[in-house]
Design a protein around this nucleic acid. Sequence first.
DNA 1: TGTAGATAGTTAACTAAGTTAAGCGTACGC
DNA 2: GCGTACGCTTAACTTAGTTAACTATCTACA
Lengths: 151, 151
Amino acid sequence: MSEPNDIAKKLMEIIPPSMGWIRTEMRSTMKEELTLPQFRIMAQIFRGKNQACDIAKHQGISQAAMSKMIDSLVARGFVEREPNENDRRHFHLVLTSEGDSFFKKARKNAQANLKEQISCLELSEREDLEKGLRALEKLFLTAHSRDNSVR
Amino acid sequence: MSEPNDIAKKLMEIIPPSMGWIRTEMRSTMKEELTLPQFRIMAQIFRGKNQACDIAKHQGISQAAMSKMIDSLVARGFVEREPNENDRRHFHLVLTSEGDSFFKKARKNAQANLKEQISCLELSEREDLEKGLRALEKLFLTAHSRDNSVR
DNA sequence: TGTAGATAGTTAACTAAGTTAAGCGTACGC
DNA sequence: GCGTACGCTTAACTTAGTTAACTATCTACA
């Protein structure tokens, strides 16, 4: 039990379809408004990450992709690029008040759906899930920071 | 603790970047050969799912998208559409011998990378992760089958 | 001081993966 | 045997990603 290899196998089996499911949930929740990658970018800005390249690194995408998605968020009036006086190479990304309230609403809806599903699990399963997510977080964070240091 | 709402929040925070990380891992493992969605389709066929619409449902994508990706797998010589005599509306998808051996090789490599990362976790964390993945599986499967029955 | 190199971001050209809508052929219930 | 549901494909489109080449800025250092 708990053989790294078995876990790796399970991870590859479970995570992608779960992700597909979350994507579908989010899509139906947010209708035409916002795609999942756009939502994630807004989530990062909301949490105080305000430099495009940092967010790009965190999401594992290129700066070019980031730049384009920020364009579309700016076009929708959800995000603004504020010039940064200290270092004029980068902008300070901020949510507009419209972006902020939309983000909060979208997050709440998406969570409500997920919450309903999660409520169907047994208590013990919910505990397992919670602990498992923490382990996954650590796994991802260590792997990720290692990547960054190497590349 | 273990409030469905907290878990939902955590899920939305952790799964997408984890997915991004797995995608990056897979990409570097499989080089130019195969994309992750293509790999997942092959995995389904490998496990005996051989009807395009079933796989499309499982992945949460449209039949049209499925059809195109199967085209590309067929073009690479990894998959074949065998006519089905019982019901000529659908094909019987099978891996070619080249597809089969490529799939096994790719899966082994991808797992080896993940395994290495997972080995860095404590034993207790690995156990948590394993249990959590099982809970996630159940969550996904029940939600998914409910979706299918409703939609 | 001035120049070399690193960093932040954009643009262009491309590909993959997804969507919806329309259509074709087959199977099946009544 | 006819309408309807099903399996699949095609066409036209969008989004998200890539790499490569570019601009502009900052920083370190001879």
